[in-house]
Design a protein around this nucleic acid. Structure first.
Lengths: 97, 97
DNA sequence: TCAAATTACGGTCGACGTAAGGATC
DNA sequence: GATCCTTACGTCGACCGTAATTTGA
């Protein structure tokens, strides 16, 4: 399980469409299908129901979606904590001003 | 930032020693040094102070350590939610009993 | 001098993109 | 017949391990 797989999964779930998800992620469909496939294989469950109009989240997929969002949110928080755009929230302002 | 980098960082921080961390992670020192290096480079900060006896966590490193532990804990929770060893906590037991 | 981290180098595995295939309505 | 997901194939990049180099008390 990698962050890339998790993010790919979330986007596919949001779009309900591998092609659309691929556009959002700036990759082609095959890599996305494979990432999802690898994730399902590792977890040993089927995350989506394949329909002729796209992908529908299954119960296991909905459960993973919750976990995935939390993980990605934490990662985003960590990244922001070190982003140069804004100072850390708890370190206090510099006394230079 | 990858889960592998985060896990590597945490182990190095715990051991204060790349060599020991490498043993725990079943890899040699160079890959571990590179993972840490890539993480520091991506974050734009120095996580450890290099000393002749090992590595000492710096303020930025301590901050990241907190984030990293939370992220890895969430990932572990997600994995357990799909682990075949135990059923999901909220799905209820099978009606077979 | 001694211990530890880091960089250089070659080899192997994984991931991507294009093209072809299978399935459903 | 059209749309979408999936698999096959060739190529490139990333990561690993061994060996050599640099760093710091």
């Amino acid at each position: 399980m990698s962050l890339l797989q998790l993010e790919s999964f979330v986007v596919i779930a949001e779009e309900g469409h591998v092609g659309r998800a691929a556009q959002r992620l700036h990759v082609s469909q095959p890599p996305l299908t494979r990432r999802l496939r690898a994730l399902e294989d590792e977890l040993g469950v089927s995350l989506f129901a394949r329909t002729p109009r796209g992908m529908t989240l299954r119960p296991d997929g909905e459960r993973l979606l919750t976990h995935a969002r939390e993980i990605l949110a934490r990662v985003d928080t960590a990244r922001r904590a070190f982003a140069p755009s804004a100072g850390p929230p708890a370190a206090g302002p510099s006394k230079s001003g």
